[in-house]
């Protein structure tokens, strides 16, 4: 009994120290964001602010707020669309494999490794040709397409674990392609949607390169606005850190809210089938 207690205590000790380590950067972010401009120096990075100075937050908020809507308009549809398409692709590739489907999957997957910097110029030209340059829908399209490989991969790996017998039974009952997807696959893949959703939401929310090249001023998402807080030569770190924390709030919220779903989905036994 005592060994069990000791083990338990040790477990918590390890967990708590890891948790504290993980929070160190957050401490730096928080304290810096609350400092006045002249207190923000490298040597004083561990020090508490001598007085709470909210000017960084005020400035950051006023600059970021107008772009918050853009980010939601971009991230939510793009996440939903890429998750839906990825789920459909994953379903087809794992359960309805056809001749050559493995090769196609490989070709698709390869696509996520393309370094985006190298394709900016043709991409901009292409977006202008289809009249989606400098628009949120254009940015959504880009994120959906470049998100397809990873979403497909995640869903395919989820669906591979679903026993084929379940599908066979449904097929014998006369349920078709869409019926199986709707009634068997979708309910079983809630966890998958949560994981993919979290992944896509954070990636799209935090993405900078496409956001900065595909939009100007009024359409810019929040990450570009965050970058714009820093100047060409001078960076005010308190404003920067305050902005970083503010800009991260929605993603944080997603984690905390969906984290529950995550567990609920697991408890429902989605994977165990």
């Amino acid at each position: 009994m005592t060994t069990k207690l000791v083990k338990r205590a040790l477990l918590y000790l390890v967990l708590i120290s890891f948790a504290l380590l993980f929070l160190v950067p957050i401490y730096v972010l928080l304290t810096t964001s609350l400092k006045g401009n002249n207190e923000v120096t490298l040597d004083q990075m561990w020090a508490f602010p001598s007085q709470i100075d909210l000017s960084g937050y005020k400035l950051a908020f006023s600059k970021l707020f107008p772009h918050l809507g853009n980010s939601f308009l971009l991230t939510i549809p793009a996440t939903i669309l890429s998750a839906l398409l990825g789920s459909m692709n994953g379903y087809v590739l794992s359960k309805w494999a056809f001749r050559g489907s493995n090769t196609l999957f490989g070709l698709m997957l390869f696509g996520m490794f393309i370094p985006y910097q190298s394709i900016l110029i043709p991409l901009i030209q292409f977006m202008q040709d289809i009249h989606l340059y400098n628009s949120i829908p254009g940015l959504i399209l880009i994120h959906v397409i470049y998100g397809l490989p990873i979403c497909t991969l995640m869903f395919r790996n989820f669906y591979v674990a679903i026993p084929t017998e379940v599908l066979e039974a449904a097929k014998i009952d006369g349920t078709g392609f869409f019926g199986i997807y709707r009634h068997i696959i979708v309910p079983l893949s809630i966890t998958g949607f949560v994981v993919v959703g979290i992944w896509q939401f954070t990636n799209i929310w935090n993405e900078f390169l496409f956001a900065v090249t595909m939009t100007t001023q009024k359409q810019q998402p929040i990450m570009v606005a965050l970058q714009n807080l820093s100047g060409s030569q001078i960076v005010q770190w308190n404003v920067q850190m305050a902005g970083a924390l503010l800009a991260a709030l929605p993603t944080l919220l997603v984690y905390i809210l969906l984290g529950r779903y995550f567990i609920r989905g697991l408890l429902a036994g989605s994977i165990k089938g």
């Binding site: 900016l120 901009i124 030209q125 900065v212 100007t216 807080l229």
Partner: peptide, 26 residues
């Protein structure tokens, strides 16, 4: 007036965007 400012990297980000736009005919 449309203020299209792009920050970061002492202007490198801006130059990347500018190069892309100029090459892209915009």
């Amino acid at each position: 007036v449309i203020n299209a400012a792009v920050a970061g990297g002492a202007g490198t980000n801006a130059k990347a965007v500018l190069a892309s736009r100029m090459q892209g005919g915009d």
